[in-house]
Design a protein around this nucleic acid. Sequence first.
DNA 1: GTCTATATTGGGATAGAC
DNA 2: GTCTATCCCAATATAGAC
Lengths: 197, 197
Amino acid sequence: MASGTRERIMDVALRLFAAQGVAATPVTAIEAGAGLSAGSGSFYRHFRDKHELLSAVLDRELAKVAEDPITWVRSPSPQRPPETELAERLGAELAFLRRLLPMIAILMWERAGPNDLAGRVRQTMTARGIELGIADLLLQAPTPPVKDDPAAAATVLISAQLGYFLSTEYFGAPPGDVEADRFTAMLARLLVGRDLP
Amino acid sequence: MASGTRERIMDVALRLFAAQGVAATPVTAIEAGAGLSAGSGSFYRHFRDKHELLSAVLDRELAKVAEDPITWVRSPSPQRPPETELAERLGAELAFLRRLLPMIAILMWERAGPNDLAGRVRQTMTARGIELGIADLLLQAPTPPVKDDPAAAATVLISAQLGYFLSTEYFGAPPGDVEADRFTAMLARLLVGRDLP
DNA sequence: GTCTATATTGGGATAGAC
DNA sequence: GTCTATCCCAATATAGAC
């Protein structure tokens, strides 16, 4: 089918937009990447302009991410220590953020844009339970600080994950060159607060 | 002095670059903002091209930030509980990040660029003790997790700060709408781990 | 639906007068 | 050191043949 072209255009655009920004990605490059002739306006048979393309790409991607469940082990052995379970969940969450990365990258570039990109991405992150789904797990092993203010604890958790992720992606390395496993393990340990004085 | 123009150009450029990105900021806009005639090439009497301007702006800004000490209370009353002191220090750190914001924003936009922007900003953040200066404070009140792996704990700390900050700046709101004080207080509490089971 | 060709604009950069 | 004027190119978008 010839209208797979539209899909191919969106695939390429997502990749290029994320890699170099919307402004820095000429339509000609998108055409080339989609197997069309570089200077031809063939692109415009499929989208009115670049902005419409951007919208379409984001909608499709957000929809995909929204469908695709976070794959983490749904506590198969319910007797494991809570910090282990939490650490695993945190790892899955980092992977989920990695899926969102292209959109986050675009968001950074298009901050000033007319579309409410921030809102749209934020909504997906929220809806996917990145924010709220956490709180209930925290409540499984609540240390006093967490019990006092679960929302703040969840904020610390999400912030740490997001910061670690963005630092790795944008600065090329995690803060302090600590690998992901070590990071999530520590974060889980601090939240669950086992071995204490 | 007429060569204050160069400084004015850099001032305007920093603002515009941070607000809308380098690519989206035409030289004409910079000229206009600096009080020069919009279409004139007067800009080029001061900088060879936009890339040189970008470099100059970053260097100047990084130098400024490097000189300017983080203003936090250097433990005036040494008997305060460590989580209070830590919370204060975390607050000062957030303010410091806010100073770095324009450069972080530029970094996000210019990720693909030829200059090693990421490296330069990262170096400043590191040099300023954002990474290492933390560890010693942590050691003032080391909970077992922190004692076991101070580097990982520091990474959690920095990541949380960075994530909270970026989320606020780019998504328009902190994760979970928790204000800064509540956030830093919780982070400090989790790290210092006072009241425990 | 894709091509070649082209109109058109916006922005980077230079020339030369003042 | 700033101006006016201009060149040049890259990129958007369209026209019309196939």
